[in-house]
């Protein structure tokens, strides 16, 4: 059974069907690219999986358990962490603190712990700090040296990196990356391709990424799924999908030129 299994996912907003009967799966240690024109429903799929939207129809299971009805924080605890298309860090917290928030769902200290700071809380705080530093260290010299800077002061690419580090700190099994390459220069994009590969090879994550940048998708994806108008129109290796006439039509078709 796959790690993430989605069957017949459907979501409607008023009269608009944003996601229409989508089947989708991710296996452990697999990198899946999701492509499609703007408004194809890619981010909506992420939002449904992570519990921000209710699913209207369909099933989704993760690691053998249903995700339906879970709140975003519960989904995270199950082991799915995400990043956001428009970078959303906690800009006024430090880089380290951002990553430490990621550890929230793996730790328990409450009010009492905070106030009395007993040995257990101290040990837990240490664990949080170490896990957060580990996640930062994955990015080499990018984040660790600036761990006490405010996240809002980071460069654009470093913010994207910190978002991924924060997601890693949740100790997830599956990372959902929403357009991680957006706004990066070609050099940074190359680095990103390597990085996503390392996520799988070194850390064993399964990754789903939404991406418009085809070289990036081509470079990392084991499998690619294409969406258009909320429907899945193709699935397979990058080569297969790229040649699929429906995909080509979706990207180049005349009907999209009006809406683009």
């Amino acid at each position: 059974m796959s790690l993430l299994e989605i069957k017949g996912m459907t979501k409607r907003f008023g009269g608009l069907t944003a996601v229409d009967q989508v089947d989708f799966h991710v296996d452990e240690g697999e990198i899946v690219g999701v492509i499609g024109p703007n408004g194809a429903g890619k981010t909506t799929v992420f939002n449904i999986v992570t519990g921000f939207y209710d699913i209207d129809e369909g099933e989704m299971t993760f690691d053998g358990g249903s995700l339906i009805g879970l709140k975003p924080n519960q989904v995270t605890k199950r082991g799915i962490a995400r990043t956001f298309q428009a970078i959303r860090l906690f800009p006024a917290m430090t880089v380290l603190e951002n990553a430490m928030v990621g550890q929230h769902c793996r730790t328990r200290a409450g009010l009492g712990g905070a106030i009395f700071k007993g040995p257990r809380t101290i040990a837990e705080e240490k664990k949080i700090r170490e896990a957060a530093r580990d996640a930062l260290a994955f990015f080499g010299k990018r984040l660790s040296p600036v761990e006490n800077e405010l996240a809002g002061s980071l460069s654009y690419a470093d913010r994207r990196r910190l978002e991924i580090a924060r997601a890693m700190a949740t100790e997830a099994k599956l990372l959902l990356l929403d357009e991680p390459a957006a706004g990066m220069n070609p050099g940074e994009k190359e680095g990103l391709v390597t990085l996503i590969g390392r996520l799988r090879d070194e850390k064993g994550y399964a990754v789903v990424l939404i991406e418009h940048d085809m070289p990036v998708v081509k470079g990392v994806s084991d499998r690619v799924t294409a969406l258009d108008y909320g429907k899945k129109i193709a699935e397979g290796t990058y080569g297969e999908v790229a040649k699929n006439p429906r995909v080509i039509e979706a990207y180049l078709g005349a009907r999209h030129e009006e809406t683009a």
Partner: peptide, 21 residues
């Protein structure tokens, strides 16, 4: 503390804090 960080995160971006658990 962990609680304080969670509150801060919530204050800055509720949805993201929720997504972080």
């Amino acid at each position: 503390s962990r609680v304080g960080r969670a509150w801060n995160a919530m204050r800055e971006d509720e949805q993201v804090a929720e997504a972080m658990g």
